[in-house]
Simulated assay, not measured.
Amino acid sequence: VFTQIDVDKFTIHPAIMGTLQVFKLTPGKNAGEVEIEEMNDTLEHILAKALGIDAVKLIPCGGGDPIAAAREQWNDGSNTLAVAPGKICVYQRNNVTNDVLYKEGMELLVVPSAELSRGRGGPRCMSMPFWREDL
């Protein structure tokens, strides 16, 4: 329901805005151990802290309109694929969200999606590998 699209920008479905309970998992001091840190904060603050930057910008699917957000999230409006900072693949049918992203300065690679989006899973889901090699 949210995707990083630039160094400090994310698409987001408005339903997850507000205070969240998040658990940060990191390797423990000994092999096989896991350190768990509970964070209760807004997504903006959690993301900024994780990225080591002052602030992030959340761009809502549907441009802040609750009806457009619900309709366009059904068509994966906030499930985009960043191919470079500020350059993202989006589904064509999400007109409101795409217009907002364009006005935010994003370069959009628009994918025709009349039937494609019916299968559920947006550009990011369909291209996210389970395992990545270190480059």
Score class of each variant (00 low, 15 high):
117 S>F: 01
26 T>K: 13
6 D>P: 11
36 I>A: 12
48 A>D: 11
3 T>N: 07
10 F>P: 00
7 V>L: 14
57 K>N: 10
40 N>Q: 14
112 P>H: 03
12 I>R: 01
35 E>C: 06
37 E>Y: 02
92 Q>P: 06
127 S>F: 12
130 F>H: 10
81 L>R: 06
93 R>C: 13
126 M>N: 12
39 M>G: 04
102 Y>P: 00
95 N>M: 14
23 F>C: 06
125 C>Q: 04
106 M>K: 00
124 R>K: 10
93 R>A: 07
130 F>E: 08
122 G>H: 03
15 A>K: 07
107 E>Y: 03
75 N>K: 14
77 G>R: 01
25 L>S: 04
105 G>K: 11
89 C>S: 12
10 F>W: 09
66 P>G: 03
111 V>H: 00
57 K>L: 12
54 D>I: 02
29 K>C: 01
107 E>I: 08
11 T>Q: 11
6 D>R: 05
129 P>W: 07
12 I>K: 02
14 P>L: 10
22 V>E: 13
99 D>G: 09
88 I>L: 01
5 I>T: 05
119 G>N: 12
82 A>M: 13
22 V>A: 13
23 F>I: 14
47 L>K: 07
116 L>D: 00
88 I>F: 01
91 Y>E: 00
78 S>Y: 07
12 I>E: 04
97 T>R: 12
98 N>C: 02
90 V>K: 05
24 K>P: 09
98 N>Y: 13
125 C>G: 09
70 A>I: 07
116 L>T: 02
57 K>S: 14
19 T>R: 15
68 A>V: 08
129 P>F: 14
53 I>C: 11
51 L>Y: 14
134 D>F: 14
93 R>Q: 05
127 S>E: 08
127 S>P: 00
61 C>K: 00
115 E>Q: 14
35 E>S: 13
11 T>K: 03
73 Q>Y: 02
85 P>F: 06
71 R>S: 11
107 E>H: 15
10 F>A: 00
104 E>Q: 09
27 P>W: 15
98 N>Q: 08
29 K>D: 15
87 K>I: 11
41 D>A: 08
11 T>G: 05
18 G>W: 05
112 P>F: 09
87 K>D: 06
118 R>E: 11
64 G>W: 01
58 L>G: 02
38 E>W: 02
127 S>I: 01
58 L>D: 00
135 L>S: 11
97 T>C: 01
16 I>K: 09
24 K>E: 08
6 D>Q: 10
128 M>Y: 07
64 G>T: 07
112 P>T: 03
4 Q>C: 09
12 I>S: 01
119 G>D: 15
117 S>R: 05
2 F>S: 00
104 E>T: 01
30 N>G: 03
9 K>A: 04
55 A>T: 09
114 A>D: 13
74 W>R: 14
14 P>C: 12
68 A>N: 04
27 P>M: 06
35 E>Y: 12
99 D>V: 03
60 P>Q: 03
76 D>R: 00
35 E>A: 14
114 A>W: 10
64 G>D: 09
45 H>Q: 15
80 T>Q: 04
42 T>N: 06
16 I>M: 15
8 D>G: 03
8 D>K: 04
117 S>P: 05
66 P>E: 09
